[in-house]
């Protein structure tokens, strides 16, 4: 346990040199790299914080836009609902109008169909009645009915209005005008005489007579004077009845 001053002094110098060496080759480089890493970490943290702030801002912007969009969507939906409701009301009204028009058309069509059906029924009934009358009168056709129809013609001739009678006389006055007599069968002489007497009396003269037989007339007579025709036959009456009934429909 001795103190050697040389060693003592050299060790002091050695230690101070070692302090410098370690400071130069150990502490400074290591502290520098630690500081550099810390700066890098701080930079990364700052970047991360900035990125987080940006992300937060983006998120807030997005939420704000989302809220605006939701609001706009809600208002658009409300507007659309109003428009849909209005359109629905409008279309329902139009549909009601169309339905009313259709109902009226259908009612008119039904009325027309009913009228047509009634008319057809009437026509059918009339045709049946005409057929019945035709068959009935066909069975009654004969000399007796001819005689009765001659009487009826004589009566009608007597009741002719003056202007018609004058027109008939003017036709008779035309040269070479004769009387065309058409019957279903040959008239009895008495009936023929009565008819010619009444005709001559009405015309005021005696015209030549041409007689024709037409079985289709069934019964009665038809007298032609120039353009004029006087008829009292079963066929003509039935035809008149048929045309009258058709006009009535």
């Amino acid at each position: 346990m001795q103190l050697d001053w040389t060693t003592f002094l050299l060790q002091i110098v050695n230690f101070l040199v070692l302090v410098w060496l370690l400071k130069r080759f150990l502490y400074q480089p290591v502290l520098a790299v630690i500081a550099r890493r810390r700066e890098g970490i701080e930079q990364a943290l700052n970047d991360a914080r900035e990125a987080e702030a940006k992300a937060e801002k983006l998120r807030e912007d997005y939420e704000s836009k989302l809220t605006e969009q939701n609001s706009a969507q809600a208002s658009a939906l409300a507007r659309l609902a109003d428009e849909v409701a209005a359109e629905r009301v409008r279309r329902l009204a139009r549909l009601d109008d169309e339905l009313s028009a259709e109902r009226e058309r259908q009612a008119a069509l039904a009325d027309k169909q009913a009228a047509d059906a009634g008319r057809k029924a009437e026509e059918a009934a009339r045709a049946a009645a005409l057929g019945f009358v035709t068959r009935l009168l066909g069975r009654l056709a004969g000399s007796a009915l001819d005689s009765r129809l001659v009487d009826m013609l004589i009566e009608d001739l007597a009741k002719l209005p003056t202007d018609q009678l004058d027109a008939l006389r003017e036709a008779a006055a035309v040269a070479e005008t004769g009387v065309q007599l058409t019957t279903a069968r040959a008239l009895a002489d008495a009936d023929l005489d009565r008819l010619l007497q009444a005709l001559n009396s009405a015309l005021g003269r005696t015209l030549p007579l041409t007689q024709t037989i037409d079985p289709d007339m069934q019964s009665g007579v038809r007298i032609g004077v120039g353009p004029w025709m006087l008829a009292a036959s079963l066929a003509d009456e039935l035809a008149f009845f048929r045309s009258g009934a058709r006009r009535a429909c």
Partner: peptide, 23 residues
């Protein structure tokens, strides 16, 4: 005039080793 003792030599060796290692 300096008598270099073993502790000094050992210290130099330690210094050399540490310096080389750190460098």
């Amino acid at each position: 005039p300096l008598a270099i003792s073993r502790p000094v030599v050992t210290t130099w060796a330690v210094m050399l080793g540490l310096t080389l290692l750190c460098a």
